[in-house]
């Protein structure tokens, strides 16, 4: 049972949270008004992952808490959590 330190609610157990995947992938174009990505670029964005063995920046949502999105940096081998930030401040997406 991971212990995730929600910046809004404090330390809470894993089962209050939902996982949102790799936070390092970036959507290019479109919504922010810039040129849309090519189909190939988009496919890579959608499907390819670094899948690191070690530090991983990832989204979590405090589903049964404040319902805010967070970006955690966690070790995928030891499950050590190095940092948790609000996605709207510290997010990388």
């Amino acid at each position: 049972m991971l212990l995730i330190s929600c910046p809004f609610c404090g330390e809470r157990p894993e089962d209050e949270f939902g996982f949102g995947g790799d936070a390092s992938v970036r959507h290019q174009g479109g919504g922010d008004g810039t040129e849309p990505a090519s189909v190939e670029q988009y496919a890579d964005y959608l499907y390819l992952r670094d899948n690191p063995k070690g530090r991983h920046a990832e989204y979590w949502v405090h589903r049964y808490g404040c319902r805010r999105w967070l970006v955690a940096e966690r070790d995928t081998v030891t499950h050590e959590i190095f940092s948790v930030k609000s996605a709207s401040e510290g997010g990388t997406g």
Partner: peptide
Amino acid sequence: GAVYEWLTMLLETRWRDLRVTLMP
């Protein structure tokens, strides 16, 4: 549930400039 989470994710991670608030 999934739609609400997805929309808030978009707002919080990508479209932080949009002045929009959601409430389930």
